[in-house]
Design a binder for these strands. Structure first.
Length: 425
RNA sequence: GGAGAGGUGCCGGAGCCUGGUUGAACGGGCCUGACUCGAAAUCAGGAGUACCCGCAAGGGUACCGGGGGUUCGAAUCCCUCCCUCUCCGCCA
């Protein structure tokens, strides 16, 4: 959520953000709603002041007639306050709705356009040249008995799966590798709940309900399955005031991630690439406003470090304005080479890191106080993928397959999984 | 799941029976000043959060787990929800 108080003075920037994101929002309605709430707030305060004075005056002996008049006036003031408060509550609700419709600002370097207009920042490694027809991860998985999609569908439904054999150990190894990398970078590790209350989910800018929601709700409890540990890590800061000296905070969260993938049918969705559940190690950072851009670079560098350790070729892209989620000020994705994508291989998203500036933090009430200062300021929040197991697995298997059908395990991963190749028979 | 006890400011802890001058005693911690070469101890002050008005000084409003009710007036009375603790049962 943007700061409603500064909407009017930053009107142009907000309008620009809406235009570039192709978001239709009633900006002037939001500005008007803010002015209306501010006015009504003053009115309620003033009415309360009068009422309080009247109440204080009632604390003394009075004769019957005087008491009766006093009580009558007290009732009248009470009704007046109630009426104005109701008006204020309605105005505040309208303001909240209007404000929630407004997306975050956009970093000046974010490219224009939509999904296909991301700017490629750089590449690492080259797509492998196979001297044999390479298999996609589904075929490799079948060959080596690594997945069971059929049973996943039977037991839990489509887009659920079982990992088997080496794939299970690879999941554990990937989680462990990523955990070690971020721990060495100063992150505090958390294993978080896999569920969260709807208001927390919403506070992070995810829509917990409705047709388009990516979020599963639990039928007999007021809870959602988390789509990412960003939700549970961010929830840690609900209504918190941090000290400047504590910042920046670097948290790493291991969780399962659940996504309905509503509306994604027909998209590239073979095998493990787009599934309803996967395991992820997520990075989450809280910074002073002036530090968030640098932290964003740091998160990207860590993501690259992980994929370099996995010896997977990748490229880094700067997501275009029209493809940015509402909370994101800027977003970098790493896309790894995947031979199974398209006709002859293609880039597939494996990590994503966003600088959400104060957009999530304001809604959560996450603030900090400068050393020696008195006022609180809203912190900045960022998130990034240390490892998303399902997609990393796709990239890993497809890039490291060998002519004899076996799959090599990159050196950095071997100590974690305990084998240096996958080979059957 | 059963029984009981609680949720008050940075912390501890009064107040609730007997509603008003209690934004909240008292103690600890914290900050400022005095004393000191410094420190400790002592003494004197000051510190909540949010929003609104104001250049500022300052002023106003709300908040004693959340929501609702009674009352001219609620931290105090009533209802409801949530949470914590202790004991019992159950279980990985």
């Amino acid at each position: 959520m943007l700061d409603p108080r500064t909407l009017a003075e930053r009107r142009d920037a907000v309008a620009e953000s809406c235009r570039r994101r192709h978001v239709r929002a009633d900006l002037d309605g939001a500005i008007a709603a803010y002015e209306r709430t501010a006015r009504l707030r003053g009115l309620v305060d003033e009415t309360n002041r009068v009422r309080n004075e009247h109440q204080k005056a009632g604390n003394r002996k009075m004769d019957a007639a005087e008491r009766e008049a006093h009580v009558a006036e007290g009732r009248r003031l009470k009704d007046e306050v109630a009426a104005r408060e109701a008006e204020l509550a309605a105005a505040e609700a309208a303001l909240r709705d209007a404000a929630l419709g407004l997306p975050n600002f956009i970093h000046p370097e974010v490219p224009d356009g939509g999904e296909d207009d991301a700017r490629e920042l750089h590449r690492h490694g080259e797509p492998p040249q196979f001297a044999f027809p390479p298999l996609d991860h589904l075929a490799l998985g079948e060959k080596h008995d690594l997945f069971d999609f059929e049973s996943g569908t039977k037991v839990a439904g489509p887009k659920f799966y079982y990992l088997k054999n080496e794939a299970v150990l690879l999941e554990l190894a990937l989680v462990r590798l990523a955990s070690d990398v971020i721990r060495s970078r100063g992150f505090t590790l958390y294993a978080t709940p896999d569920v969260a209350k709807p208001e927390i989910v919403a506070g992070l800018g995810f829509n917990p309900r409705g047709e388009e929601t990516q979020i599963y709700s639990i039928a007999n409890a007021d809870l959602c399955l988390v789509g990412t540990a960003e939700i549970t890590l961010g929830g840690l800061f609900l209504d918190r005031v941090l000290e400047e000296a504590e910042l920046p905070l670097r948290l790493g969260g291991i969780s399962h991630c659940f996504r309905t993938e509503a509306g994604s049918y027909g998209r590239e969705s073979k095998g493990l690439y787009r599934v309803h559940q996967f395991t992820k190690v997520e990075m989450f950072c809280v910074t002073r406003p002036e530090d968030s851009d640098a932290m964003h670079d740091e998160l990207l560098a860590i993501e690259e470090q992980v994929f370099q350790a996995l010896e997977v070729p990748y490229r880094v892209i700067d997501i275009a304005a029209g493809d940015l989620g509402a909370p994101a000020y800027r977003k970098f994705d790493i896309e790894a080479w995947m031979v199974g994508r398209g006709e002859s291989g293609g880039w597939g998203e494996v990590t994503s890191t966003s600088n959400c500036t104060d957009y999530q933090a304001r809604r959560l009430g996450a603030r900090f106080r400068r050393t020696g200062g008195k006022k609180t300021e809203t912190v900045h929040m960022l998130n990034g993928t240390a490892i998303a197991v399902s997609r990393a697995l796709v990239a890993l298997l497809e890039n490291h397959q060998r002519a004899d059908g076996s799959i090599a395990i990159p050196k950095a991963l071997q100590p974690y999984c305990g084998f240096d190749e996958i080979r059957r028979g």
